[in-house]
């Protein structure tokens, strides 16, 4: 299908973008990579009056170390996330996740900021942001505000972004030697939406897990933290016993719905399998064959 008619304006600064949004008498949308927005327009699931093209705002680009965080500009393409030496060094979980995201041609245009602003619960990057304890940087008419990833995602495709606000960057704490992190997912085919995905971020004190941050995608309306499973790991060494305890605890964390693709029970089963797989890979010991 073809998109409903809309007007188009290309802007070159965040200030200009915010002003264009404020000045639009109808519905406006920010256009970045367009890899989710344009399908929605072509399917007429969305029909704004104005697209504000933010794709050439230089200040929204770039990946840099700032203090103890890695700042990733909103316009960072998924292909850049996949290949950036800074991301591999400081937030390798994002490199792992980007390999699962859609297909190569989509990754050449899709952006970090677009994925986080859309907040598709099946998407990989939102789960990574919660696992990493990232901070989302949001530009608005009153200036810039920073929101912790745990407070940013509200509901299905819903975030704390107010109309007209613009996600400008994310800041991710730098990896440290005592932290192990991993992203993995289970999908029917390469590039398909995950049936379940998991971003895991464990801080160790010696052999003991000090804190665990587990964030699942595709099992609820938002990327889902798993506090019971996290607690089951904290204060214990990572091994068969603590992994089994975390898998058992997961029932208290997740309650996926039945849907056309998968029953709730099957999705829950896959979440446990994936949790076991990811934690085993993060453990020191030899990797065990997965016992589902």
């Amino acid at each position: 299908m073809k998109a409903r008619a809309f007007d188009y304006r290309r802007v070159t600064s965040v200030t200009e973008a915010l002003a264009a949004y404020a000045g639009c008498r109808g519905e406006a949308r920010y256009l970045a990579g367009g890899q989710s927005l344009l399908p929605a327009l072509n399917l007429r699931l969305d029909g704004p009056d104005l697209l504000i093209d933010i794709g050439r705002i230089d200040t929204l680009r770039g990946i840099s170390v700032e203090g103890d965080a890695l700042r990733i500009g909103a316009l960072t393409r998924h292909a850049e996330t996949l290949s950036s030496p800074l991301i591999v060094a400081h937030a390798p979980i994002l490199t792992e996740a980007a390999a699962f995201m859609a297909h190569p041609a989509i990754r050449n245009l899709g952006t970090m900021g677009g994925s986080l602003a859309l907040a598709d619960p099946a998407s990989e990057l939102p789960a990574c942001m919660r696992a990493l304890g990232a901070v989302i940087e949001i530009a608005g008419p009153a200036g810039t505000r920073n929101v912790a990833a745990d407070d940013y995602f509200r509901d299905l495709f819903e975030t704390v972004l107010a109309p007209g606000e613009l996600l400008s960057a994310v800041r991710v704490p730098l990896a440290r030697p005592d932290i192990r992190m991993r992203f993995d997912e289970i999908a029917r085919r390469r590039g398909d939406y995950a049936m379940v995905g998991l971003a895991a971020h464990l801080a160790f004190s010696g052999d003991v897990v000090e804190t665990a941050r587990l964030a699942f995608c595709s099992v609820g309306p938002t990327p889902m933290r798993a506090p019971a499973a996290e607690s089951a790991l904290a204060g214990r060494s990572l091994g068969p016993e603590s992994i089994a305890a975390a898998k058992a605890a997961l029932a208290a964390d997740l309650a996926p719905d039945d849907d056309d693709a998968l029953s709730a029970a099957a999705r829950m089963h896959l979440a446990r399998v994936l949790l076991g797989r990811v934690l085993s890979a993060l453990g020191d010991g030899p990797q065990r064959a997965e016992a589902a």
């Binding site: 367009g34 344009l38 093209d53 989509i106 050449n108």
Partner: peptide
């Protein structure tokens, strides 16, 4: 026309992209 089938892929500045998910004006 939703970026799933890949039949419209062209090179944009040397990189493959879906021509259905890009506006001409962009």
């Amino acid at each position: 026309e939703v970026g799933a089938c890949g039949a419209c892929i062209v090179n944009l500045d040397g990189q493959p992209v879906h021509a259905c998910l890009m506006l001409a004006v962009q």
